[in-house]
Amino acid sequence: MFIGTEKLTHTYMPGTPFANEALKEVTFQLKKGEIALVIGPSGSGKSTLIQHLNGLLKPTSGQVLFEGRTVGSDKAELLKLRKRIGLVFQMPEEQFFSETVYDEVAFAPRNLGFAENEVQTSVTGALQEVGLDPDALLDRHPFQLSSGQKRLVALAAVLSFKPEVLILDEPTAGLDSFSRANLFNLLAVLNRNTGLTILICTHHLDEAAALAETVFVLKQGRLVLNGPTSEIFSKREQLHKLGLGLPAVTEIMYWLAEEGLDVRTDIYTLEGARQEINKLKGRQEK
């Protein structure tokens, strides 16, 4: 196990009439180099969970584990955790505060005490990693960029300190289809080339499902389903009851199967659906 939790419980405003148990004994594990999704209705505890993985919240009970060890709650240890686990919030560009793209991306490495020449190489490196041209952008004001570029700069700002785990909260909210596809491709490439472990919280499965090996499903603070992608998306009825859906192509495959066509339903990409439907022709000709 690389990172995970053990019976993690989190109560907001404990001991008050507003006490709200946002996570209830959540135990899960992520392997090194894995891409996983966390899905669940609004208010199911997704954001609370990922804030724990980054040491932004302290468990009410239970623990966060990293490399097999319990993460302590003293400042030094939490700082170490934050250096190794990068968190990209929802709409991260809304938190931009620097005058230039350079300063924005350099913020974390500077804060973590990198020497200025190291800061420079990490900024350029991170921008290149997300497919942006450092020469063209370094001196630009972040607010002058397009929405897609801003999101990529926000991602570069986290990649700049070379985290080993990248956690993203609804990373494509507000992006057009081109930027959505681009961002997910980028995550796949980062994972393949650098072995980056990635955890994505999202409501939009169309692009994300094909990327993930594992899916975790939260409901009212509890981990209700947990397993390989194909296993989780085979529980269609249960997901619908939870108010969740399937990727649109998967839903089409289910409808075809319900009409009696002999097709697989563990299909998450257009190309996969195309091949599967084409097999029908092959069968007729035989």
């Binding site: 289809s177 081109f178 649109a248 089409i252 409808w255 257009l270 195309r274 439907i277 084409n278």
Partner: peptide, 30 residues
């Protein structure tokens, strides 16, 4: 314009290339 069609439209286009006889202007899964 860098936009994608919905899953139905994209899938129907691929299947037409493969020789499936599908009417144009399909936009609904059903």
């Amino acid at each position: 314009f860098g936009l994608q069609g919905n899953a139905v439209v994209e899938l129907a286009a691929l299947l037409r290339e493969d020789g499936f006889d599908l009417p144009p202007q399909l936009i609904h899964s059903r």
